[in-house]
C-alpha cells in the first residue's frame, strides 16, 4: 500500500473498527485516539518522506499513483502530493487529533460522533491527495455530508437549522461545481487529446476562452461557498456557532481552507484565462468580503461567531 492511499484507508478502517468493536465512550475514544494518533504519525512521516523525495524528484507531484477506475470516462484514482497538500494533510491530522481530545467527554452517542468525525477526515485527506477531478469531487462531498450529523446531533442552539443551512449551501455549491467540472471535462479534448479528468493533463490543454469564461465562475463559486467567501458565507457564522467545538475547529482550520485550495488547484489552475477575465469581479468581491467580514465581526456577540467572521474576512 502506498503512503498516500493509507490516508484514506486508515480512516475507513477506524470507522469500521468503531462500528463493530466500540461498545461505549471509553472504547470509542480509545480507538479514535489510537487511530488519529497513527494518522498523525503518518502525516509526520509524510513530511519527512516528502522532503526526502523532493530532493530527487522534480515532478510537480510526488508519490504519484494512478489506477484506472471508470475506464469509459477515463476516470482514474490518481493521487500525488506537493508541498501545499503535504502541509494541509499535516494540518488536518493535527486538528483531528486535537478534535478527538477536545471531544473527550462527549456523552451523547459517542461512537457515532467519532465515526462521523473520522469519516469526514477520510474525505478531507482524499481531497488533498487527489489529482483527478472526479475523484477529488467524490472526496469533497464525502467531507461535507457528515457535517450535517455532527452539527445536527451534537451541536448547540438552533442546531437543526444551522446544520440544514450549512449542508444545503455546501451541497448546492458542490452541485454547481459538478457542472463546472463537467464543462472542464468535455473541453479537455480541445487540443485533440482524449477526454480526461486528470488535473495535470487538463492543465496542458488550451481550453477555449469562451468555455473558460462560462465555467470559471461555476467552479469558483463551487469552492467559494465552502471557503465562505462573501456573499456565500452565510452558512458559516450560524454553522460555527452551532457546531461542537471540535467541528468548529475543523471547519475554520481545514474545511474552509479546502475552498481556497480548490480555487487555486482547480479554478485558477485549469481555467487561467477565465480567471483572468473574471479577476476584477472576484477581486472586488473578495475585497468587499474583507471589509464586510470585519464589520460583521464587530457586531456579532458570540465569540464563535466572531471567529467565523474573522475567518471569512481572512480568506
Amino acid at each position: 500500500m502506498d503512503i498516500l492511499s493509507l490516508f484514506v484507508i486508515v480512516p475507513v478502517l477506524i470507522v469500521l473498527a468503531l462500528t463493530f468493536f466500540a461498545k461505549d465512550l471509553k472504547q470509542a475514544r480509545l480507538i479514535s485516539v489510537v487511530g488519529m494518533g497513527i494518522q498523525f504519525a503518518m502525516s509526520i512521516n509524510l513530511i519527512f518522506a516528502y522532503l526526502k523525495e523532493r530532493a530527487v524528484n522534480t515532478g510537480i507531484m510526488v508519490f504519484t499513483k494512478d489506477v484506472v477506475w471508470y475506464e469509459t470516462f477515463n476516470i482514474h484514482y490518481s493521487i500525488g502530493v506537493d508541498a501545499i497538500s503535504v502541509v494541509m494533510i499535516a494540518l488536518t491530522s493535527v486538528v483531528l487529533l486535537a478534535g478527538v481530545f477536545i471531544s473527550w467527554k462527549i456523552d451523547d452517542l459517542p461512537k457515532e460522533f467519532f465515526i462521523s468525525l473520522i469519516a469526514l477526515s477520510s474525505g478531507v485527506f482524499g481531497f488533498f491527495i487527489s489529482t483527478d477531478l472526479f475523484t477529488m469531487f467524490v472526496f469533497y462531498e464525502i467531507a461535507v455530508i457528515p457535517m450535517y450529523l455532527l452539527i445536527g446531533i451534537w451541536g448547540s442552539g438552533p442546531k437543526e437549522n444551522s446544520a440544514m443551512k450549512l449542508t444545503l449551501m455546501l451541497m448546492g455549491a458542490s452541485a454547481v461545481l459538478s457542472v463546472g467540472i463537467l464543462g472542464i471535462y468535455f473541453n479537455s479534448n480541445a487540443d485533440g487529446g482524449p477526454l480526461t479528468f486528470n488535473i495535470f493533463e487538463i492543465a496542458q490543454v488550451n481550453i477555449p476562452e469562451a468555455a473558460q469564461n462560462i465555467f470559471f465562475p461555476l467552479t469558483f463559486i463551487g469552492f467559494a461557498v465552502i471557503g465562505a467567501l462573501f456573499p456565500f458565507h452565510t452558512w458559516s457564522p450560524s454553522g460555527h456557532a452551532s457546531a461542537p467545538t471540535a467541528v468548529s475547529m475543523l471547519h475554520a482550520g481545514v474545511l474552509m481552507k479546502l475552498g481556497g485550495y480548490g480555487v487555486f488547484r482547480i479554478a485558477m489552475y485549469l481555467l487561467p484565462v477565465g480567471a483572468l477575465n473574471w479577476s476584477d469581479f472576484f477581486l472586488v468581491l473578495s475585497a468587499f468580503g474583507v471589509i464586510y467580514g470585519a464589520f460583521g465581526a464587530v457586531m456579532q456577540k458570540d465569540l464563535k461567531y466572531v471567529n467565523a467572521y474573522a475567518s471569512v474576512s481572512h480568506l
Binding site: W235, Y292, F295, G296, M299, Q300
Partner: peptide, 23 residues
C-alpha cells in the same frame, strides 16, 4: 457610528439581504 450605523446596517444587510436571499 460604527455599531449604531455602519455595523448595524452591515449586520442588517447580512441578515436581511444576503442571508435572506439564501434562505
Amino acid at each position: 457610528i460604527l455599531f449604531g450605523i455602519v455595523a448595524f446596517s452591515a449586520s442588517w444587510f447580512d441578515k436581511n439581504v444576503v442571508d435572506s436571499s439564501m434562505i
